[in-house]
Amino acid sequence: MDLAAQLAQNWSVGVFIVAVLALCTFMVTASALLGGRAWGHNKETPYESGIVPAGSAHQRFSVKFYMVAMLFVIFDVEALYLFGWAISIRETGWTGLIGATIFIFILLAGLIYDSRVGALDWVPKRRVQPDRVHQPAQRDQADN
């Protein structure tokens, strides 16, 4: 790429980014300046479908979300290594392919393990509660 094209591209990228930011600023401030103001008795309360808000909104939520975050970090970082392989697939040749195959199968094994321990199930099907698992069997015996 020659100098003129390079300079033109740098300038257009810069102007593009500045224009996007300017557009955002304009939209946020313009509506803040133009909008009306109204006052109401129960206006300054969080929306909870019309009932009086109960308790703080910054409450605890399910641990499953942390699990998803951890799985994301693990698998996304490992996917990044595959990006490097995908771009250089012809340079690394069959040696690279063998390495990538081993890597992908380790990833798949990890995924199957996560799936088997129930990490991917949003609602675990069988909670490990021995007495409940055995209950139906006992009832069957009683019926017989």
Binding site: L3, A4, L7, A8, S12, V15
Partner: peptide, 12 residues
């Protein structure tokens, strides 16, 4: 060069 920059910016 200036012309190329102007055209590029306008296109962006």
């Amino acid at each position: 060069v200036l012309l190329a920059i102007t055209v590029g910016v306008l296109k962006a």
